Computed example of a mutant assay.
Amino acid sequence: MNDRVLVFEGIHNFRDYGGYAAADGRLRHGLLWRSGQHCDATPDDLAGVADLGISTVIDLRGDSERQLMPCLRHESFDGLVLFAPGETAGSELAPHEEAGRGITTADEARAAMTRLYENMPFRMVLVRSLTLYFEALATREGASLLHCLAGKDRTGLAAALLHRLLGVHEDDVMADYLLTNVAGNQKRRIAAAGASIRQRYGSQITDEAIETLMGVDAMYLDAATRSIHERYGSTERYAEEVLGVDATRRQALRQKLVN
């Protein structure tokens, strides 16, 4: 799985989420990229990203996040950056930051993250962002980059939805989601986030709680999936009724992304 990961200095969790076996073949490599924010990207990082030929960027962050941490782009980048205006996480904070409010221990952090995931698929600005994501994948040419702040929660949900709609085996869906926990320089990523979370909420938050907030757990994605199925019966029906991904759009996704 780590063969998928590109290690950059200032961009975390950068990886290819294509290549998995799907219902009608295999997802193409080199077309589907995901990551965290690019605000801290170095010139070498930007050059490495430019080499991937990305023509579409789908930014799942909210307005406040984009304003506070504007992503850097290589001077040669001439692609399209898509986002929905508003706050995709329900506040000005990323989900892992929002979950840090009022917690101290790892167990409390895990419970807070699970509660956030239960509602994440129905947050209206994120829904609009996901609608843009699926529209872009079905209609635009070239490679795409999907990212949020940490590249693990909103991005993880979006990638899992695409995988499921294209028939990727559930084991691979979860393996790709959990790859966040070992992708790239974990110590640097967690330390940077830990300083921000403690500055916002206080020093009482344990190291284990910070690691929990900055990681992913199967129970988080399971919580989102369970909420989707409770309301809509299936991922396919949710995608069609909420995100506009009907049978025609699913076929377009297969034609673009599966060989």
Rank of each mutant, 00 (worst) to 15 (best):
N119W: 01
C39L: 04
G202C: 05
G18T: 02
A175R: 14
V5L: 14
G48C: 02
L126H: 02
R66Y: 11
G142K: 02
A50I: 05
R34F: 01
Y20E: 12
L166C: 01
Y133P: 04
S196H: 12
Q255Y: 10
S76W: 10
A47Q: 15
L149N: 15
H12R: 12
E92M: 12
V57W: 06
Y220I: 04
C148A: 07
G36I: 09
Y17P: 09
S196K: 15
S91Y: 05
H169W: 03
R115N: 15
C71G: 15
M214R: 14
G156L: 12
D153P: 09
T155V: 04
L93A: 13
V57E: 05
G86N: 08
D107P: 11
D63Y: 14
L82R: 11
L80G: 07
T114N: 00
E75M: 01
D107W: 06
D63L: 10
G215R: 14
M113Y: 07
G62F: 09
R4D: 09
R28E: 05
L68S: 07
C71Y: 13
G202A: 04
E97W: 10
L130H: 06
L166S: 02
V258Y: 05
F77S: 03
Y17N: 14
L68E: 10
H169D: 10
G79A: 05
L32P: 13
N181A: 10
S35M: 15
L31Q: 08
E211S: 12
R140E: 06
G25L: 12
R231P: 00
L149E: 13
N119M: 00
L166H: 02
L116C: 01
L179A: 10
M1L: 11
R110I: 14
G215E: 08
R4S: 08
R164D: 06
E240M: 12
G100V: 10
E108Q: 14
G184Q: 09
P85G: 07
L213G: 12
D222G: 03
L257I: 06
M124C: 07
H12V: 14
R128H: 08
L213I: 13
L149G: 14
I190N: 02
G202P: 06
